[in-house]
């Protein structure tokens, strides 16, 4: 009766599968970081119309978005070492996690770049002009005016992307990395209680996603300046007198 469904195993397996959680989290966090940095770069290059780089960015984005992540992973995992060996770099001791960081990081970058670009472009152009005519440098304009507003707009889509990345990391086991799913698969195969092990992994993913959702929701509420309410006060009908002492 060994292969009957035994619910208590779900809880018994949990600690063991949880031991692989750091790998899943590391994958998600590092890939998100790479995604944000490279993605912001791509968005920036596209917005500022940088010649050549803009074309590269467009091709890259449409390639990543047009192919399944599993194929990208195999391409990086099998293709990259081949290329590196070809130019004489030894890849024997490279941790497979590195290939996953590259795959998921670049994948995130492509998707995030579009989210970032849309968010940057949704900040009204007149505010750029107002910043520039006020004498802001481009850097000051982005840091003080554009980014803070774009961030608020981007948070909901960004949250969706991070949570979906978390789920996507479950493909890591296909190249032999023991993340949460890899661990569950290994346990299931060893004990023939595959379903219990996967349910265990499922519970971990549900709880993680829920936590992420709450965190982003909190962030969104916290950073949204337009939802801060204040009653509109009446205008004082004063005849203005402006003192304008000369500075120079």
């Amino acid at each position: 009766m060994n292969n009957l469904f035994q619910p208590q195993l779900i809880w018994q397996y949990l600690p063991d599968i949880l031991s692989a959680l750091p790998v899943t989290l590391l994958l998600t966090i590092v890939s998100t970081l790479i995604g944000v940095i490279v993605g912001a770069g791509i968005a920036f290059v596209r917005m500022e119309d940088t010649p050549f780089f803009k074309q590269v960015a467009i091709v890259f984005t449409s390639f990543i978005r047009g192919t399944p992540i599993l194929i990208q992973m195999f391409l990086v995992y099998y293709g990259l070492p081949f290329l590196l060996n070809y130019i004489g770099v030894n890849t024997d001791n490279v941790n497979p996690l590195i290939y996953l960081f590259i795959t998921y990081g670049l994948n995130m970058a492509a998707f995030l770049s579009e989210i970032i670009r849309a968010a940057l472009e949704s900040v009204p152009a007149t505010q750029r002009e107002a910043a520039l005519t006020s004498g802001y440098t481009k850097r000051q304009m982005y840091m003080k005016i554009i980014f803070p507003q774009a961030m608020v707009i981007a948070i909901p889509s960004f949250a969706t992307m991070v949570i979906s990345l978390l789920q996507d990391t479950s493909l890591a086991f296909t190249i032999g990395v023991l993340d949460v799913v890899g661990k569950a698969k290994a346990l299931g195969t060893a004990t023939f209680h595959t379903v219990e092990a996967y349910i265990s992994a499922m519970i971990i993913f549900i709880i993680l996603s829920f936590i992420l959702e709450r965190v982003f929701h909190w962030l969104e509420k916290r950073s949204n300046y337009s939802s801060r309410q204040m009653p509109i006060a009446a205008t004082n009908p004063v005849m203005p007198v402006i003192e304008h002492p000369k500075t120079s």
Binding site: Q127, L132, T133, S134, G135, Y225
Partner: peptide
């Protein structure tokens, strides 16, 4: 351009206040 802009102020048709 930066130096020049710092000697002028501009008022826009649609106000262009920084919304944040």
């Amino acid at each position: 351009v930066l130096q020049l802009r710092r000697k002028m102020g501009m008022v826009f048709q649609n106000y262009a206040l920084f919304l944040n």
